Amino acid sequence: MQYSVRPISDRTAFAGHHRSSPFQSSWVASERLLLAEVKHLQGRDLVLELDIREQDLRLDGTLRANARPASPAVRVAFESVHGPLTYATDRFSSWYDNARAIALGLEALRKVDRYGITKRGEQYSGWKALPAGRAMPASHMTRDDALGVFGVWGRALPALPAIPAEHVNTDPDSLRGMYRSARRAAHPDRNNGDQTAWDQVEQAAAVLGVTR
Score class of each variant (00 low, 15 high):
residue 1 M to N: 05
residue 1 M to S: 14
residue 4 S to D: 15
residue 5 V to I: 15
residue 6 R to P: 04
residue 6 R to L: 12
residue 8 I to H: 02
residue 11 R to H: 12
residue 13 A to D: 12
residue 13 A to T: 00
residue 17 H to M: 06
residue 20 S to E: 13
residue 21 S to R: 04
residue 21 S to W: 06
residue 23 F to M: 05
residue 23 F to K: 03
residue 23 F to Y: 15
residue 24 Q to F: 14
residue 27 W to T: 06
residue 28 V to S: 13
residue 30 S to K: 06
residue 31 E to G: 01
residue 31 E to A: 11
residue 32 R to Q: 15
residue 34 L to H: 03
residue 35 L to Q: 14
residue 36 A to K: 06
residue 37 E to F: 02
residue 38 V to A: 07
residue 40 H to I: 10
residue 43 G to H: 00
residue 46 L to A: 12
residue 50 L to A: 12
residue 59 L to A: 12
residue 61 G to T: 08
residue 62 T to S: 14
residue 62 T to M: 02
residue 66 N to Q: 15
residue 67 A to Q: 09
residue 70 A to R: 15
residue 71 S to N: 10
residue 71 S to Q: 11
residue 72 P to Q: 08
residue 75 R to Y: 01
residue 76 V to I: 15
residue 77 A to C: 12
residue 79 E to N: 14
residue 81 V to I: 15
residue 90 D to E: 09
residue 92 F to V: 03
residue 93 S to R: 09
residue 94 S to G: 07
residue 98 N to Q: 08
residue 99 A to F: 02
residue 101 A to L: 10
residue 101 A to V: 01
residue 104 L to R: 10
residue 106 L to Y: 05
residue 107 E to I: 00
residue 108 A to M: 05
residue 110 R to T: 06
residue 110 R to G: 15
residue 111 K to P: 00
residue 112 V to D: 14
residue 114 R to Y: 08
residue 117 I to P: 02
residue 117 I to T: 08
residue 118 T to N: 10
residue 121 G to L: 04
residue 121 G to S: 10
residue 121 G to I: 11
residue 123 Q to R: 12
residue 124 Y to P: 02
residue 126 G to C: 00
residue 127 W to R: 06
residue 128 K to D: 00
residue 130 L to P: 01
residue 130 L to V: 01
residue 132 A to R: 04
residue 133 G to H: 06
residue 133 G to F: 07
residue 134 R to D: 07
residue 138 A to H: 05
residue 140 H to V: 01
residue 141 M to I: 10
residue 141 M to P: 03
residue 142 T to D: 03
residue 147 L to H: 04
residue 148 G to H: 03
residue 150 F to K: 01
residue 150 F to M: 14
residue 155 R to M: 02
residue 155 R to S: 11
residue 157 L to I: 11
residue 158 P to C: 14
residue 158 P to F: 12
residue 161 P to F: 05
residue 162 A to R: 07
residue 162 A to P: 00
residue 166 E to Q: 11
residue 167 H to E: 13
residue 168 V to M: 02
residue 169 N to A: 13
residue 169 N to Y: 01
residue 169 N to S: 11
residue 172 P to D: 08
residue 175 L to K: 00
residue 175 L to W: 04
residue 176 R to N: 01
residue 176 R to G: 06
residue 177 G to D: 11
residue 178 M to V: 01
residue 179 Y to P: 04
residue 181 S to E: 11
residue 183 R to Q: 15
residue 184 R to I: 13
residue 190 R to M: 15
residue 193 G to A: 06
residue 194 D to T: 03
residue 194 D to Y: 03
residue 196 T to G: 03
residue 197 A to N: 09
residue 199 D to S: 06
residue 199 D to E: 02
residue 201 V to G: 04
residue 202 E to M: 08
residue 203 Q to R: 12
residue 207 V to G: 05
residue 208 L to I: 00
residue 210 V to F: 07
